[in-house]
Simulated assay, not measured.
Amino acid sequence: MKLNKNIVSIITPMKKNGNIDFDDFTKIIKFQLKKNTKFILVSGTTGECSTLKMEEKLKLVDLVKFYTKNIVVGSSYNSTEKTIHFLKNAKIKGARYCLLNTPYYNTNLERNILNYFNEVFSNTKIPIILYDIPNRTGVKLSIKTIKKISKIKGVLGIKESCGDIKKEMFIKKYTKLDIYSGDDFTSAISNIIGAKGVISVISNIFPEIINKIFNCKFKDKIYIQKKIFKLTNLLFSETNPVPIKWLMYKIKMIKQPKVRSPLLILKKNKKKILNEYKKIKTWKKKIT
């Protein structure tokens, strides 16, 4: 199956002691599939990939495959050898695609970055979505570099998390990559200018709304985007996934709002987040 328009970047629910709550994780997967979500991203930024052990990531992939074959796995390593080792095993467990960021800290040189993506695909044969997220990797990919990466066999798409609509337009013009918005608050605009879809955080709670954005008329896309705009911004008022986990805890989708250190449980905007959630929950009945 080809990649869908709405890919949910799933959280990794945890117990008070920091261990993964696999029961809650299973409930979330079932909820997503019931709401017609076609693709699940496991171990993305929202899934706290940086603090998950490799064996934990593989166990999550292994669990999801019992419910759907449409799995994207996030790889957050900056070691080429470790990335290849992980993705080979993730593919065996059932991952069909990977979300792959540039190797942070090690290098920002174009030739090293191109070699990284070449080596990863050559050794794993798992299709790649390039993850452009400079505020986390420290590397802001130029259009020129993205164009070169797009010519590497196996690189099919890009998750663009710069919040730069102009950049997305250039990517659309100069490459054949499928573009996925990395920001819920710009997903409708991205879709209008040619993005195929979104890799979404808010879909953890409102997948049907995000599905609607990518399957409605122009004026309706803008209307929906305006309605969810405040909440999508508030969900990034602290480091993702802190706010979305807290909200999912408050609405009883998970038992604990626990995040792994160095992240801490949400401190600010709690009332605002909950109020905006309630507004959208009431309003969404009109459109879904």
Rank of each mutant, 00 (worst) to 15 (best):
K5E: 05
V8N: 03
S9I: 03
S9G: 13
I10P: 02
P13C: 02
K15W: 06
K15C: 05
N17W: 04
N17I: 08
N17L: 04
D21S: 11
D21E: 10
D24I: 13
N36Y: 13
T37G: 09
V42L: 00
S43Q: 04
G44V: 04
T46M: 10
G47C: 01
G47K: 02
E55Y: 06
K59Y: 10
L60Y: 01
V61M: 12
D62N: 14
K65V: 15
Y67T: 05
I71S: 02
V72N: 00
V73D: 09
V73L: 10
G74M: 00
S75F: 02
S75N: 15
S75P: 03
S76A: 15
N78L: 10
T80E: 12
E81C: 12
T83I: 00
T83S: 11
H85E: 15
F86L: 15
F86A: 10
L87E: 07
A95Y: 09
T102A: 10
T102E: 01
Y105L: 09
N106G: 14
R111K: 15
F117A: 06
N123K: 15
N123S: 14
N123P: 05
T124N: 11
T124C: 13
P134H: 04
V139R: 06
L141W: 04
K144I: 10
T145D: 07
T145S: 12
T145W: 02
I146C: 08
K147H: 07
G154A: 13
S161V: 00
G163M: 11
G163R: 10
I165P: 07
K166M: 15
I171R: 03
L177I: 09
Y180S: 07
D183F: 07
D183Q: 11
D184H: 03
F185H: 07
S187K: 04
A188H: 02
S190D: 11
N191D: 09
I193N: 01
A195K: 03
K196Q: 01
V198T: 01
I199T: 02
V201R: 04
I205F: 06
I205Q: 02
E208Y: 08
E208N: 12
I209M: 01
I209P: 00
I210Y: 05
I210C: 02
K212D: 05
K212Q: 07
K212S: 09
N215A: 11
K217A: 13
Y223R: 15
I224D: 00
I224C: 03
I228S: 02
I228T: 02
K230R: 14
F236P: 04
S237N: 14
E238C: 06
E238K: 01
T239L: 15
K245V: 07
K245L: 09
K245F: 01
I251W: 11
R260L: 14
L266E: 07
K267A: 06
K267L: 08
K270V: 05
K271V: 14
I273S: 01
N275H: 10
E276A: 00
K279G: 08
K285G: 14
K286E: 14
